[in-house]
Nucleic acid binder design. Structure first.
Lengths: 212, 212
DNA sequence: GGCTTTTATTGACATAGGTCAAGGTTTTTT
DNA sequence: AAAAAACCTTGACCTATGTCAATAAAAGCC
């Protein structure tokens, strides 16, 4: 249980406080594709991702997933719902076998929220979420499909090599067809090159940048 | 300067603290349509809206405004940019003649952030913003034009009477044409009625609700 | 009360991106 | 290595919403 100390939000707690925390929390394992919670569920536990990856998405009118965010170990999941005592605003699904720490939220609130170190960490976590949401808006509302792809290429050139195009498409909330067509267009206009084994290389960084 | 005490975030401060706060802040008046800050500007002051209304929007690739949020008196504007020391992620424009309190952020941080009451208020403000952003995503990414209009009708029946359709359209980020067509459709299917003087009355609340 | 400006409505058309389908490629399984 | 499954690409078509233009209606103004 020393992992608690590795989690940013609890890193400043004393041993005694950590002991207390241990009493109100438990670890649960999940397998890939299991659901942590659905949009509309009532929150009970505060979740901290210990291991694995978790994606959060909303579902639009056609049942299509709108990817919002991906969590990595250490991430504090969906605290908003707890603070405001409202149903989860999105669905969370594990992308790989994972472990989460489940903390009894009511108990946490009672014992820990007066601690200024914790409230500072909560502010930090909220700010990080805030940024994520602004990025989602940027991505979904402001950018065209081309701009989304250009941005992703610039910021994640490496990732493009390891992820399948369907995965990239779903992160960008595009269909694989659109992604494929966009990449072909970039290739045709000499912005990128595709080497052996599907490895994409950016040829003209500046012109890609201009698309944003 | 007793207005400071009426602002939620400062309501728990002692007189001495308020005096200190007064020293690092000033009031500035703006007229309707003036800009408080542009997307990309560097933040210097933390702004609190004292009087009037302020809208925040982003601009998409075609120069079109994407309305994000409207502030009312008491609102703490764009604190994220300060906490993270990043440029403003959107543009803020006054919709009516207004007054804002400008606070020297660096000084505020130094003197006030250790105060647990203030940090709690900051958390509350951040959570409120978070909610707003989730609503923006809901509105812009998940809902169709019909659903947006249905939602707005259900939640703001009164507002529809006072606002012009162009104003409603801009809040919903739709063109006036699309709004007009959508309303005609609703009228044709007996969901709403338009009485004298453009007053819209909801006839079938349940069926409107189903569109969401 | 008649001008001028601002809104609202309607039609014809444009466009980005999605959908469906088919064929080719790659990866996984056995 | 063969078979099955998953993935990628391309074409034809669809749909929601935006754009542009014309006219009608309403609101503001001397």
């Amino acid at each position: 249980m020393d992992r608690l100390r590795d989690i940013a939000i609890f890193s400043h707690l004393s041993d005694i406080q950590l002991e207390k925390l241990k009493k109100i929390s438990s670890v649960k394992k999940y397998r890939a594709k299991e659901i942590l919670f659905y949009e509309g569920d009532e929150p009970v536990y505060l979740h901290v991702l210990l291991q694995g990856t978790l994606k959060v998405y909303k579902t639009n009118h056609k049942g299509q997933q709108i990817f919002l965010h991906q969590f990595y170990p250490g991430g504090l999941v969906a605290e908003l719902a707890h603070f405001e005592n409202i149903p989860y605003p999105a669905t969370a699904e594990f992308m790989s076998d994972s472990e989460v720490l489940r903390i009894d939220y009511k108990a946490l609130e009672k014992d820990f929220f007066k601690n200024p170190d914790i409230s500072f960490e909560i502010i930090k976590s909220l700010i990080a979420k805030h940024k994520i949401l602004i990025d989602v808006i940027q991505k979904e509302v402001i950018l065209t499909a081309e701009a989304k792809v250009a941005k992703f290429l610039l910021e994640n050139e490496e990732l493009f090599k390891t992820l399948k195009n369907t995965q990239v498409a779903s992160i960008l909330n595009l269909t694989p067809e659109t992604l494929s067509r966009t990449l072909s267009k970039f290739k045709a206009s000499g912005l990128i090159e595709v080497g052996d084994e599907h490895h994409i290389r950016i040829v003209n960084r500046d012109r890609l940048q201009e698309m944003l």
